Simulated scan of single mutants.
Amino acid sequence: MNSTVQVITWQGLALAFVPTLIVLAIMWRWTAGVGTGIYATFRMLAQLLLIGYVLVYIFETGRPSVVLAVLGFMLVVSSWISIRPLQGKSRRLYRNAFLSISLSGVLTLALVSQSVIGIEPWFNPRYLIPLAGMIFAGAMTTVSLAGERAYAEASRGVSYTEARRIAMQAALIPMVNSLLAVGLVSLPGMMTGQILSGVSPVVAAKYQIVVMSMLFGVTGMSAAMFLYLEKTELRKKAKSPQ
């Protein structure tokens, strides 16, 4: 297949914001928080352009210490963001979120990068960093959903076992929906990107199967671990509902 990547010009990039401008205009007309939309759009633009240049530097360094430092930074930030929806943020919550995301995420990343794909060298940032980003982000979101739902149920006086069951089911809804819809309703970003870059659709499908499997695994493990680590606090909450 043709492996030539169609380069997006700066003019083309600007045109991509036409739908965004339409939505911002609607938000302004309906007084639906257009300021937040504008801020989020500019922040997204700045972050992605910045990370593009940062990744160029990381890819060219060839130093495992730099790659490991980036992975550590990603874990610290994702753990902090994961507890954002929870009330009464504490060191305990952050520690448990960090342990849940780190243990499940690093285990999954090591399995996929070293055994499934077999990247060379082992720290190849072109593979390791994108894979880590998907894994840590998936775990982060699921820990947030599981924690928020578990504490909401516990505050109603629901037992720990029942709150855990409800929270686990709720946290995995987005992932299960993705598994059901992939290939029928949507072509995920990684598969679409590979096809656009000229990779065979069959090869792209294999990579996407790996991605979906690793995401289902890491999201389930991270949520289960977080709920287990928060068991004592959830039981206390259930005994004194507010």
Rank of each mutant, 00 (worst) to 15 (best):
T41K: 02
T41P: 00
T41G: 02
T41S: 12
T41I: 04
F42N: 08
F42Y: 06
F42Q: 05
F42A: 12
F42W: 07
R43L: 04
R43C: 07
R43K: 13
M44K: 02
M44L: 12
M44C: 09
M44W: 08
M44H: 04
M44Y: 10
M44P: 03
L45W: 06
L45D: 07
L45T: 14
L45M: 13
A46L: 14
A46F: 12
A46M: 13
A46G: 12
A46R: 09
A46Q: 09
Q47F: 06
Q47W: 03
Q47R: 01
Q47N: 06
Q47P: 06
L48K: 00
L48C: 06
L48T: 10
L48F: 04
L48N: 01
L48Y: 02
L48Q: 02
L49F: 12
L49T: 10
L49W: 05
L49H: 04
L50K: 04
L50R: 06
L50N: 03
L50G: 08
L50Q: 02
I51F: 10
I51S: 07
I51V: 15
G52T: 01
G52H: 02
G52F: 01
Y53W: 15
Y53A: 13
V54E: 05
V54I: 14
V54L: 14
V54H: 07
V54T: 08
L55V: 10
L55M: 15
L55E: 01
L55H: 03
L55N: 02
V56G: 06
V56H: 14
V56C: 01
Y57K: 13
Y57N: 09
Y57W: 13
I58W: 08
I58C: 03
I58N: 01
F59D: 06
F59C: 11
F59W: 08
F59A: 09
E60Q: 14
E60W: 00
E60R: 12
E60Y: 00
E60D: 14
T61D: 10
T61K: 11
T61Y: 00
T61G: 00
T61Q: 13
T61S: 14
G62T: 08
G62D: 07
G62F: 03
G62L: 03
G62M: 06
G62K: 07
G62A: 10
R63E: 15
R63P: 11
R63H: 15
R63C: 00
R63V: 04
R63I: 01
R63L: 08
P64F: 13
P64T: 15
P64Y: 14
P64E: 14
P64D: 10
S65H: 05
S65I: 15
S65L: 11
V66C: 05
V67K: 14
V67I: 12
V67A: 10
V67G: 11
L68G: 00
L68D: 00
L68P: 00
L68S: 06
A69T: 15
A69L: 15
A69N: 13
A69D: 11
A69Y: 13
A69P: 12
A69E: 12
V70S: 10
V70W: 05
V70E: 06
V70A: 15
L71S: 08
L71R: 07
L71Q: 10
L71D: 11
L71T: 09
L71I: 14
L71K: 07
